[in-house]
Nucleic acid binder design. Sequence first.
DNA 1: CCCCTCCATGATAGATACAACAGCGCCGAG
DNA 2: CTCGGCGCTGTTGTATCTATCATGGAGGGG
Lengths: 216, 216
Amino acid sequence: MRTSARPTGSAAQRAYDFAKWAILNAVYGAGDVITEGALANEIGVSRTPVREALLRLEVEGLVELHPKKGAVVTSFTQQEVEDVLEARVLVENFTAARSFANRATFLDALVQVHEDMGRRRREQDTAGFTECDRIFHELIVDGAGNAVLSAIYRTLRERQTLFTSVMVRGRGDRMDAAIAEHDRIIERLQADDVDAFAGVVNEHLVWSTNLARESR
Amino acid sequence: MRTSARPTGSAAQRAYDFAKWAILNAVYGAGDVITEGALANEIGVSRTPVREALLRLEVEGLVELHPKKGAVVTSFTQQEVEDVLEARVLVENFTAARSFANRATFLDALVQVHEDMGRRRREQDTAGFTECDRIFHELIVDGAGNAVLSAIYRTLRERQTLFTSVMVRGRGDRMDAAIAEHDRIIERLQADDVDAFAGVVNEHLVWSTNLARESR
DNA sequence: CCCCTCCATGATAGATACAACAGCGCCGAG
DNA sequence: CTCGGCGCTGTTGTATCTATCATGGAGGGG
């Protein structure tokens, strides 16, 4: 009768959400093969929606589909890592410069997230801290008002989390540094100098990508 | 024995290729609904590979999947058009500046495509002309050596063809102008001035996007 | 002892069957 | 004439079944 645990949303959506969560949280590591049947059993649906989920994830670059063999979680070469980071910096620098003009629309939210981020750091809530960092950057990117670039940015950032498993866990110094840089960003945003703002954003990105390289 | 008409490639690939071709060549216009059954009959496969094809096309932004209703060919608002163009210019300007250093690896091919493009223009082969233009730009973008940005560029350009149905057909003047600009690009590429090269590329992109805006 | 072939196994690719749902028109009541 | 409910139809969403193919190991021949 299935009285309980009837999940919400379509089976395909559940399959997609679960698979993506599992990959981004390193339940499946790079190089692991995911079989449709296994995922289907895990989630409790047939293989069809699982196929759909894996297909989406392939287009997003999170898995590679090998015909007749299976889906393997993407593993990155050094070159591919550099490509993703370069693309991310390109998009974020550009959108940041654009969003400066619209800063009134998101500055309040930015400050709020920033405060939340400090709280998480004090509470040693690494996952929450990382989440706040993601939102912080997305707010700026979205501020540019270009939905296409926003979507591209999100997939790039997701791919980045694939090869930087842990950036700040147990590294209070890194968290403090990130907060300090975000401080400067907000500061420049409240001032009236777009170039200075773009400068600190770019500095933060350089710092952040160097961290990502070290955290492979 | 199936002596004839055994198509090459997987059914899913055929479905994808056909649907994409049909959309990009305006067989299905913006706003048209594509039903899985119809496409399946058209291609001669079952609905399963068709679903897969439509899913990919959705992620690429060529169709929108409405649950229980069908797939409709994406129609763009003015804002979305601007977003796509802006993103394309961003990626292409950046990759062009990068590929200047590697120009030895693709300059021969570029010249060859350029000559072919002139031939097509003389022969009034509009489709071939457009194809050459696409390859010309892709050569420069790929020259940067960033596979991620190359892939992004391709999807952006495909989306652009969706809202610029016809840019040069019957417009010999536009073809001549494009060729002249490509001439300048090759010229600057053979010289040793990256800034001048980046300059003419950007000018060409401005001209090209203005054309795209006019050709909606 | 090594390598090559064949086959058992398990996976995906594709087809088909079925269920659920949205849209639309018909029909009747007011 | 208008409005609201009801069922019909067509479409997608999901499950399941079959065929095909990749893979790895066993076994025989060189």
